[in-house]
Simulated assay, not measured.
Amino acid sequence: MIPLGYLYKHVADRPAWLTAAHVADVYSLSGCVSKPFADYVDYWKHNGYWLFNSPHEITELANAASISLEGLRLFYYEAYELQFDEDEKAWEAFEPEPFATDVVAPISKKLEGFDIASFTMGDMAECSPLSCNSLASRLPVNEHCLLGSFEEAKAVVEGGGLEGCEAGPYRVVAVYSV
């Protein structure tokens, strides 16, 4: 797995339109349901995976911009080293954008599950079909709208489970609480 980085998020409760009653909240990588702490791209402090190399970098940005992190959750993300091209039906390599990318591993982390995210622009995660396209209503996701294992997530991607969802390529992402 490739370390992608960190992000503070406003964790949203399960939206009413997501008919997966066992889902309590959404821990997805994308910001469609659970929003990032700010529109941080405008500050150009993110790394090549459009996340942050350390929690300290986020805290510095938040302090400088008077952004409160109170009540937010800190997540750490890692991705499978290949992304899936749904047109070619094949896994392919991907690289970070040319920004300083030197992710500091967390001292402790708790694996919450695995997300699948679309990356049509090649940089920032756009959508997480488990929540954004309501796949959680028909897939065995946990209470945080994540799949329980890497193998499950990879099988969904390879098995055509994302047909009719947002365009890819897709990346399988491990989501950790820190």
Rank of each mutant, 00 (worst) to 15 (best):
D115N: 07
G159T: 08
P55H: 02
F150P: 15
A155C: 07
A100L: 10
D102R: 10
A93V: 07
E158A: 11
V157R: 12
E81P: 14
C127R: 15
R138Y: 00
E112C: 09
I116K: 03
V103G: 06
L139G: 02
A65V: 00
L18P: 04
V175D: 14
V178E: 15
E158K: 12
F114W: 14
L162D: 05
K89A: 11
Y77A: 07
D39G: 07
Y27A: 11
C127D: 15
C165W: 02
E86C: 06
E112G: 07
C145Y: 07
N133G: 05
G159H: 03
A64M: 01
G159F: 02
G71L: 00
M1I: 10
K9Q: 14
L74Q: 14
E70R: 08
P96T: 12
I58S: 04
V141A: 01
Y176L: 10
S30V: 13
L82D: 14
S131E: 11
N133L: 03
L111G: 12
P106Y: 03
A167W: 10
S66K: 00
V41P: 04
D25Y: 06
A24C: 03
I116S: 07
L139V: 00
V172G: 12
A117Y: 05
T59K: 00
V11T: 08
D85H: 05
A105K: 09
D39N: 06
F94P: 10
H46E: 11
L74W: 14
Y176T: 12
S118D: 13
P55T: 01
L130D: 09
A38T: 08
F150G: 13
A24K: 08
N47Y: 03
T120C: 05
L130K: 02
Y80I: 12
A24D: 11
F119S: 08
R171N: 10
V103P: 05
F119H: 15
L69T: 13
K154G: 08
L18D: 08
A12R: 02
K154N: 10
C32S: 15
T101D: 11
V175C: 13
